[in-house]
Nucleic acid binder design. Structure first.
Lengths: 183, 183
DNA sequence: GCCCTCATGTAATATGTTACATGATTTG
DNA sequence: CAAATCATGTAACATATTACATGAGGGC
C-alpha cells in the first residue's frame, strides 16, 4: 500500500470525527491535538486536494445552493483502509523535540546566571499555562463524555501531555534552585 | 543584529566546545544533544559555509600538509557576539513535539485494543532504552566532571530528558493497564 | 585486501511556515 | 454597520531529509 506523509494521515484521522472542512480540521488540531501535533493551512488545503485525487475522500459541496460552496470531505472506503493500515504500522521512532530552551541552556556557560534564571522562569510560566489549558480541555471532554465515542482515547493523550508537562515544570523548579545556588 | 536560524545558532554553540569539524559537530549533536536536537550533514556543511561567509567563524585547514585538508572552524569575535546575543533572546515558544504514537492513539477507536496495547508496549520499551542511554551519558559526564567547563549545564539538560522520559514511561504503564482493563 | 571510521560535500526531494488575497456570514 | 469569525486558497520562502559520491587512514 502506498505511503503518505504524517500530515495526510493526521487529516484522514480527523475526517473520522465530525470535522469536514479545511477550516474545521485546523480548529480541531489547534484545540485538541495541540499538545502533540500542529498544522498550517498551507499544508491542509493542498493535502486535502491530494486526498481527493488519491480517492481517499470525496468532496461534497454543501447542498444548500444559496451558500457559497463549503467543501465537506468524506472518507471513502479506500481512505478508511489507508488510515487503518497506517494505525497498525509500528512506530518508526520516538520523537526528538527540538527544544530551544535546552539548546540555550546547553551553552549556558556563556551567559550570566541571572539571565539563565530569567529564561527558565519564563519557560516555567509558559509550561504552567499549558498545563492549565490541558486541565481545561480535560474538563470539557469529561463533561460530555457520553457523546463522543473517541473520548477515552483523547483523554489518554491529554494525560500524556499533563504528565510530561508536570515533569518539565518540576525540572524547572529544581534547576532554578540549583542555578540560583551557584552564585 | 541579523537573525539566523536555529541550526546556525546550534552550530555556533557547538563551536565553543572542542568540536571543530563538520563531522565532529554531527557526532556531538548525535551523542550529547540527541534528546533535544538533531541535525543532518545536509544542514551542517551548507551552514558552516554560511557561517564563514558571514564572518562568524574562520576556517583553518589543518596545518599538517601531508593530511588531506581537515577543515577546522573557529568562532570569530563577531561569531561569539552573535551567539551571546541569541542566548539572551527570550524563548519564542515552548516546542510542540509531533508525536506519532499519540496521533495514532488519538484515533485508537479505529483499531483493536490488542494492537494498541502492542504499540504502547513497543513505545514504552523504546523509552526505557532512551532512559538507559541518558543514564549512561550522565555517568560519562560525571566521571570527568572537572575537565569540562560546560559539564553542569549538560547535566541539567540530561536531567530534563530523564525526568520527561520517566513521566512518559509511567504514562505508558498506566495507559497500558487502562486499555487492557477495557476488554 | 576488506571493512570501518573519519571526513566533506551536493542534488533532489520533501516538508513546513508565512504572508497574502479574497469574500461570506455572524454577532454585537 | 463594524468587527470577528468562517472559509478557501496560493506563492514564496525556509527548512530538513535522503541518497549519493568521493576518498583517506587504520585495524584485522
Amino acid at each position: 500500500m502506498k505511503n503518505y506523509n504524517y500530515t495526510t494521515y493526521a487529516i484522514l484521522g480527523i475526517l473520522t470525527t465530525d470535522c469536514r472542512t479545511g477550516y474545521a480540521i485546523k480548529q480541531m488540531i489547534d484545540r485538541s491535538l495541540n499538545h502533540f501535533w500542529k498544522i498550517s493551512y498551507g499544508q491542509i488545503y493542498p493535502t486535502l486536494k491530494l486526498i481527493v485525487e488519491e480517492g481517499l475522500a470525496t468532496i461534497s459541496v454543501s447542498p444548500d445552493e444559496t451558500k457559497p460552496g463549503k467543501n465537506e470531505y468524506y472518507l471513502t472506503l479506500k481512505g478508511k483502509e489507508v488510515l487503518k493500515n497506517w494505525l497498525e504500522e509500528p512506530i518508526e521512532q520516538i520523537p526528538v523535540e527540538r527544544n530551544e530552551l535546552l539548546l540555550k541552556l546547553f551553552f549556558g556557560r556563556h551567559q550570566s546566571n541571572e539571565k539563565t534564571v530569567h529564561q527558565l522562569g519564563e519557560y516555567k510560566r509558559k509550561l504552567e499555562t499549558r498545563y492549565a489549558t490541558y486541565t481545561g480541555i480535560e474538563q470539557a471532554i469529561t463533561n460530555d463524555l457520553g457523546k463522543e465515542a473517541d473520548a477515552s482515547y483523547w483523554l489518554f493523550t491529554l494525560d500524556y501531555g499533563k504528565r510530561v508537562t508536570k515533569a518539565a515544570i518540576e525540572w524547572c523548579t529544581f534547576t532554578l534552585e540549583e542555578i540560583s545556588k551557584e552564585e
